[in-house]
Design a protein around this nucleic acid. Structure first.
Lengths: 166, 166, 166, 166
DNA sequence: TTTT
DNA sequence: TTTT
């Protein structure tokens, strides 16, 4: 649609180490499980409450996947910017299910490390394929556009059949 | 978790008229179905591609629900700011399912009308309960906090049993 | 700095037609003046108040400048995503001044048209230089990175001496 | 204007300890100086480049000011969400100047601590005045609305005359 | 189910 | 003036 925006911004911690898979033609796909939470005090009882939300984040970008592989592990705090995508899939029993994910892919996706626990220190990475004047640290070269477009426009069944949802 | 952010920003159009239900104790809950889409031209074939994403938006705020009821209808373009929330529910067959929604509730939620087709013209609304110096147009009084907190921290089964997912 | 984010999101209307200049080596730079405003009712007097904020937006991206030139004019409503940048300059009297602008340049910048008054209809554009599978409508090729980097890291005096601030 | 959005999102570090002043009628105003930066490698020379941007952040909210006072100091990393505001002022020599600031005030403003160096640990705070079910940690009570509106709609000269710009 |  |  002309004139639409689909953006998710999360700051949270990885609940477990990243999982990196490869499509049949070798492109990497990283999956992160990110927790955000809010705390408040119940007015009636006075007890402290916390509600944690878990987000499934999927990264279709070769350079971002490398970053993820090298620097992120369980507990790392990250800032991510991506888009919402709901995907339909069929479980082993043949039941149709839906999974909503935060997808980082193409322009306007970002991943920034916010703590120093990773060896490489914090850093900010877009998923464009610039090359150009910007080196690996600022704007990491992304996967070939064909890969990105495939991810965006139609993740094929062959790639995703084995994709157990969040 | 201390130090987390959970934010969704959408600009899109309502796919159908809003649905407004009421909880057993009378609080309104509005559901919007919002479309965003992106278009691109396939490099290989040259054909124009479009991918539409549908978002389920749930509004827990009495004043925002009033706005929705008065001004929004199928086709309206809106800017919304909310948070991701995944909810577990059980269908009629007893199968557990998950539904991810964009929730507008409490502070840091916003709904802004972006076209002139609604009688009331465009307008921007937060969901705080300020009252104060801000009149109905800028910062509409929200539902009692108890309602909001209930929505946030634990939507009760009795309210939600009949909640057919997206 | 590792781990930082600098992001501005505006939805507003152009206060006047865009101004497009060219640097000495021919790269286009578009300037937009965008208004946002909030309205509220004064609690004491009951009168309706409105406060308009004007934003100077600068676009360093050849394809985005083309879009601006073709489609945007006074009154157009846009969604833009860019970064804050404060620039020092010296006026004719030799007084040092500062101007803060919203800069659209490189990855993670976006311009989306939100109304139909422009001939081309609404549309969303990033400023990456992908080429690739995405055609002109989704992700317009941007200026050479050298140009972008120059704009980002050090707008030269020769280009900018005549830059009358907002 | 109906239908506008004015939002700034920053993740950065305080360049110095916060400054907290009070208006003549006793309301606190906190000023933060926040750095964001980007690094890249120059394609030609291969040298590492860095560009730091400094942001002046102004907080009009009693509870947020308390948080700032208690927990933030030089070097702290924060996530903030506010709005752009350009303010005109006159220096000692009678020259009119402009200062653009990121203002946190009213609903849809947020401050979240992102590191553990502050005694209180990380935490997220809105600036609504809810009270309600949310305790001090999640949604701190804000200053009286009259104060907020004054800050928003017209910071009076008497309060701000001594305001040396960024 | 929207919109262009 | 921060941070890496």
């Amino acid at each position: 649609m002309a004139g639409s925006v689909n953006k998710v911004i999360l700051v949270g911690n990885l609940g477990k180490d990243p999982e990196i898979r490869r499509t049949q033609d070798g492109r990497p796909i990283a999956n992160l499980s990110i927790a955000t939470s809010e705390t408040w005090r119940d007015k009636g009882t006075g007890e402290r409450k916390e509600k944690t939300e878990w987000h499934r984040v999927v990264i279709f970008s070769e350079p971002l996947c490398k970053i993820v592989e090298q620097y992120l592990k369980k507990g790392a705090k990250v800032y991510i910017e991506g888009a919402l995508q709901t995907r339909k899939w069929t479980d082993q029993a043949g039941v149709e299910k839906y999974s909503t994910e935060v997808v980082l892919q193409g322009f306007n996706s970002t991943l920034t490390m916010l703590d120093g626990r990773s060896g490489g220190g914090g850093g900010s990475f877009g998923s464009d394929d610039s090359g150009g004047d910007f080196g690996t640290e600022r704007a990491v070269s992304s996967a070939p556009r064909r890969a990105v477009a495939a991810g965006a426009g139609g993740r094929s069944n062959s790639d995703m059949d084995d994709d157990i949802p969040f």
